[in-house]
C-alpha cells in the first residue's frame, strides 16, 4: 500500500504543470524515503528529475516500493478539479492498475475522489554522474524567467557566461544581438531578502550555449520556488534547479549547443 498526503495540494499541481510540457508520461517511483521521477523530452535534449522527500508530506506510508506509471496530461485534467487550498491525498495498492487522488477543502466541506488509470511505461533511467560544476549561480526565479522569455524574442540560442563578478546572458538573431548581465550581490549587504540576491560561486569562468526554447520550458517551475540555481561546467549539461522548502526539488538538465 502506498499513501501520502500534502496540505498544499496546489504544490503538486504546480509540479505536474512543470513537467507535463516536457515529458508526456513517466514513472513515479515511490519508496520508503519519498517519490522520484525522471523523464526525457522526445528529442532527448533535456532531462527532468523530481525528488520529493517524505518529510514534506503530512502523511507518508510506503510498505513496498511501488511504481506509478502516469500520463501527465490525464493527471493534470484531474488535478484541475482540485481547489486552490485543498489538501491532496494519493493512494495506490501494491499491484493496482489505478491510483486514487482525493481533494479535500480546508473545512472538509467538499471532498472529491478521482481514480486515474495507470500505465505500464518502459522507461530507461539515466544515471547522472556526480559532477563538480565550475560555476553555480543562485538568482531570483522570476528574474531568470523574464530573461529567458525576453531573449527568446530575439534569438533561439542563449550564451551564458559566468565570471566572479557577473553572469551574462547573450543572444543573437536576424534583427541584431544583445546581452543582459546580472552582477553578484554585495556580500556586505545585510538588508533585504536573500532570495532577491544574485550569488555566484565560481571555480573558473565558463561559457556555454543553450536552446532558449527548453529554458523557457523549465521556467514553468518558477511558481514552485523564489530562487533558481544554475550549475554550469565546460561541455556538460546545465542544471536548472528549483528547491521547494522541505518537500524536495525539481531539476532540469539541458545538453549544451556546441559552436561548430
Amino acid at each position: 500500500m502506498f499513501e501520502c498526503a500534502l496540505i498544499q495540494g496546489e504544490l503538486f499541481r504546480k509540479l505536474i504543470a512543470s513537467v507535463q510540457d516536457l515529458v508526456q508520461d513517466g514513472n513515479f517511483m515511490c519508496d520508503a524515503n519519498g517519490i522520484s521521477l525522471q523523464g526525457m523530452d522526445s528529442s532527448h535534449v533535456a532531462l527532468v528529475a523530481l525528488a520529493l522527500k517524505k518529510e514534506g508530506f503530512v502523511e507518508y506510508r510506503c510498505d513496498r516500493d511501488v511504481t506509478l506509471g502516469i500520463n501527465f496530461a490525464n493527471l493534470a485534467k484531474m488535478l484541475k478539479c482540485m481547489g486552490a487550498k485543498d489538501r491532496l491525498s494519493i493512494r495506490a495498492q501494491d499491484e493496482g492498475d489505478s491510483a486514487s487522488f482525493v481533494f479535500e477543502s480546508e473545512d472538509s466541506s467538499r471532498v472529491s475522489n478521482f481514480e486515474l488509470k495507470l500505465m505500464q511505461i518502459d522507461q530507461e533511467q539515466l544515471g547522472v554522474p556526480e559532477t563538480q560544476y565550475k560555476a553555480v549561480i543562485r538568482m531570483p526565479s522570476s528574474e531568470f524567467q523574464r530573461i529567458c522569455k525576453d531573449l527568446s524574442a530575439i534569438g533561439d540560442t542563449v550564451s551564458i557566461s559566468v565570471t566572479k563578478e557577473a553572469v551574462k546572458f547573450s543572444v543573437g538573431g536576424d534583427i541584431g544581438s544583445g546581452d543582459m548581465s546580472l552582477r553578484q550581490s554585495e556580500s556586505g549587504d545585510v538588508d533585504g531578502d536573500d532570495s532577491e540576491k544574485v550569488m555566484i560561486e565560481l571555480e573558473e569562468p565558463v561559457q556555454q550555449n543553450f536552446a532558449l526554447r527548453y529554458l523557457n520550458n523549465f521556467t514553468k517551475a518558477t511558481a514552485l520556488s523564489k530562487t533558481v540555481t544554475l550549475s554550469l561546467g565546460t561541455d556538460m549539461p546545465l542544471v536548472t534547479e528549483y528547491k521547494m522548502d522541505n518537500l524536495g526539488s525539481i531539476r532540469y538538465y539541458l545538453a549544451p549547443k556546441i559552436d561548430e
Binding site: M40, S43, H44, V45, A46, L47, E124, Q125, L126, G127, V128, P129, T157, N209, A211, M236, P237, Y253, L254, A255, P256, K257, I258, D259, E260
Partner: peptide
C-alpha cells in the same frame, strides 16, 4: 552555427 547535443551523450544508462 550551433549543434544541439543530446543528454544521452553525457549521462549513462543506469
Amino acid at each position: 552555427p550551433f549543434q544541439q547535443q543530446t543528454i544521452t551523450n553525457f549521462f549513462f544508462k543506469a
